[in-house]
Design a protein around this nucleic acid. Sequence first.
DNA 1: CTGAAAGCGCTAACAG
DNA 2: CTGTTAGCGCTTTCAG
Lengths: 333, 333
Amino acid sequence: MNITEFAKAAGVSKSAVSRYFNDGYLSEEKRRLIEAAIEATGYAPSVQAQNVRTRVTKLVGVIIPKLSSESCAREVEGISQVLSEQGYQLLLVNSANDPKKEVEYLELFRSNRVDGVIFLASVFTPLHDAVLKKMRVPVVIVGQEYKGANCVCHDDYKAAYTAEKLMLDKGCKKPAFIGVTEQDKAAGQARKDGFLHALSDNGINIEKSDMQTAEFKMDSGYKKALTLLRSGRRYDHILCATDNLAAGALLACREQGLKVPEDIMIAGIGDSQLCNVTSTPLTSVHFHYRTAGIEAAQMLLNSLKRESSIPRTLTLGFELEERESTEKKCETV
Amino acid sequence: MNITEFAKAAGVSKSAVSRYFNDGYLSEEKRRLIEAAIEATGYAPSVQAQNVRTRVTKLVGVIIPKLSSESCAREVEGISQVLSEQGYQLLLVNSANDPKKEVEYLELFRSNRVDGVIFLASVFTPLHDAVLKKMRVPVVIVGQEYKGANCVCHDDYKAAYTAEKLMLDKGCKKPAFIGVTEQDKAAGQARKDGFLHALSDNGINIEKSDMQTAEFKMDSGYKKALTLLRSGRRYDHILCATDNLAAGALLACREQGLKVPEDIMIAGIGDSQLCNVTSTPLTSVHFHYRTAGIEAAQMLLNSLKRESSIPRTLTLGFELEERESTEKKCETV
DNA sequence: CTGAAAGCGCTAACAG
DNA sequence: CTGTTAGCGCTTTCAG
């Protein structure tokens, strides 16, 4: 059923129907007529046709690298919450961590179909730069800093710094680190930098071999920890760039007969659900993922209202969650 | 830029451009002309306008109760994978477990905007029945059985039966159960039924107070387990309807000084990542969530092709993952 | 193989 | 407050 048929059924004109669904410059009588007809027929206007006319789709494209990751899921929840309140819907695409797909989707969204884009980013390539420059709809980037675009990100550097400092303050002296690829400026580079600066601020040296680069999964954390532990160097703490990695490291330590935290402390970053259920609960840094999603959505909404505005970067704070895995060593009585 | 402007720029007619992007009844020469112009201008046809004409949106609505749940996230990943291969995109809405919102979104999708709907369901109300009956686009329901609709679900009954039987076979005699609301036919009722039938098949009796109903979170599992343990009745195993609950129960047991599995065995259902990192790794039933998403998407694709077809229900199998939490008690030497 | 022309369902001036 | 009218950008007959 289309608007013309419906108008006839309701006994009013097309325009009246249109007005009913839009501004509403309408007499009470017609309004009632239309309401009754809707009840009877179940008519609803075609969004696509509205789109063609008005040029707004009420759709926001969301590009995510991996849905089954706690942090992404929470960010998307935040995004979804504020956007749906404003009558927007999410067009969700999964890039599966494939940079080519990310670019492809950005391309798809570039001039079409959506009013704006929220991009949960991890790694940027020159291709990204090219397509981001050409976007005709506003874009908000979440999780990474990106010059010239609206960004919402976490304070990865300080988070790592703080977690490492905690362990040093508790008397640790022999640091090890399990990180992720530095192509990821946030989770890779910034967290490593934070770790290193905490060390240098405390006059502690470290060798290259004390730092491992893992993939984003527990299993990889386990293997890298094993490499560290078997190296012969005796570490008294390990900072891991993610909780999954920390959980893996914890497993490795126990297998090697090391007690956590007595023999070796471990901390992660992200404060995922994992941290509370591991054999030894894991100290971690809590990031506000849901809030990041909320802020990103609001930022996008703002760009959608006022036309051009100056790009802003919002950096969210964090909380250090101390748990058993970094509990103070036996106090000197 | 619209098709008319673009056609002019390319030096061809509107129809030629349209044909280029559709069937392609076109001479090589024009084809090249158009390709060059695309390269130069970056033109892409407006999907909305195409939609109005063709009546297909290449959009599938996906209704989920909670994104930050491992099972949902995996199902959506499966859905996304096959649908995006076929050129469909996901319109994702989060019902936040609110039945009213679910109905609202179904309503929204009923006759509009999307070509089909995939509904990750938990609880059905009469309102659901009403709106589902009125849907004009194909719907696939995931995670629940629903008469008269296409469904993909897990074998909740047998899963619970199998997990319980495992513990009975290992010599357990005093069962306890922590479940979820029976309004949820799958995770609530079917799992409880499976548990109860395993008991009766083995001639074991149980009292009402041995069974608790929790909410879907770890914390709730913890509390309910505490209630059980403090009741004075001495249980030798607990079956939990979800892994989160099992993780909570595990915590409670340890706090009460019970060793798992020596003093008490615990098993969950869902085989989430949790199970591998808990202090005692948790036995659980592995469901094929990702596969469920894939199957649901394919089912929808089928309905989209051939018009009316008979509703089908696909029940996926499972695997019992035995871990330390149900390891055999000290063998009688 | 091709262009002209007639809509798809809707909104937004415009003149009452 | 209301109906008429002219498109939005595209696809698809139809007659070449």
